[in-house]
Design a protein around this nucleic acid. Structure first.
Lengths: 119, 119
DNA sequence: GCTACACACTTGCTTTTTGCAAGTCACTAG
DNA sequence: CTAGTGACTTGCAAAAAGCAAGTGTGTAGC
């Protein structure tokens, strides 16, 4: 995503242009919980389709939220992890957790380790 | 949206199921800034299409983020405003503002009044 | 060698959502 | 009787999402 693609200079609109879809923050959550491999993300209960996951990981690398590194050669396998820019989304996901917990009583209480995360 | 439509009980996924698109939080931002009428939302620089705006306002009323009231009869005209549940998104939009300001230096600094908002 | 299996994707196709332009409906003003 | 405003709705093309199946590269077992 280039800056010229942003709808406006508004920080909220800019944030939504980068990660305003149904999957990106779910993947960020998984990464914050230590998941790193393609198959690990697929294992999450939301059930992201493989093509969507591949597209999101690609875009997250392009926008600098995550980085991709080979954790082994032959066969080449990759791990994805958040960059500092990606980790800086922690306050955003925490705020969302707080909101959902307040208004959707049936939703889960995140693990303490997750809520204790700091950028 | 019914609870059975949620992808999982995760609070982040739940939040994204309710407002995980490119427009809803832009409209929330406008409402926090005092906008209330259909034409006022259309005036924002992001340029939401009229059919999308109508659909989002409808869904925001259905999910309890906003309420719609007639501010005059004949011709009937409506005003939209956030419910307490909608105002509780303030920490989410503030967190997004902070993130965008940190990583996209060209984006605007929100007005002090906006950043001083509390649920 | 052959089969089976794992991981990380990619491809093809259908369905859904988005976005744009234009039109509608209920009025008010001149 | 025409023009204008506000709040939408409709039609249609383009883009994105979702599903199932397939591909490429390797290891393990027989």
């Amino acid at each position: 995503m280039r800056e010229t693609d942003f709808r406006s200079g508004c920080p909220i609109a800019t944030t939504l242009d980068v990660l305003g879809d149904k999957w990106t923050l779910v993947i960020v959550r998984d990464m914050l919980n230590g998941k790193a491999k393609f198959a690990e993300f697929l294992g999450s209960p939301e059930g992201v389709p493989t093509n969507i996951l591949a597209a999101r990981l690609k875009r997250m690398v392009e926008t600098g939220l995550a980085k991709k590194t080979a954790y082994q050669e032959r066969p080449k396998r990759f791990a994805y992890e958040l960059t500092p820019k990606g980790r800086d989304l922690i306050p955003v996901v925490h705020a969302m957790c707080g909101w959902a917990k307040s208004h959707y009583s049936e939703c889960w209480t995140p693990p303490v380790a997750f809520m204790d995360l700091r950028p």
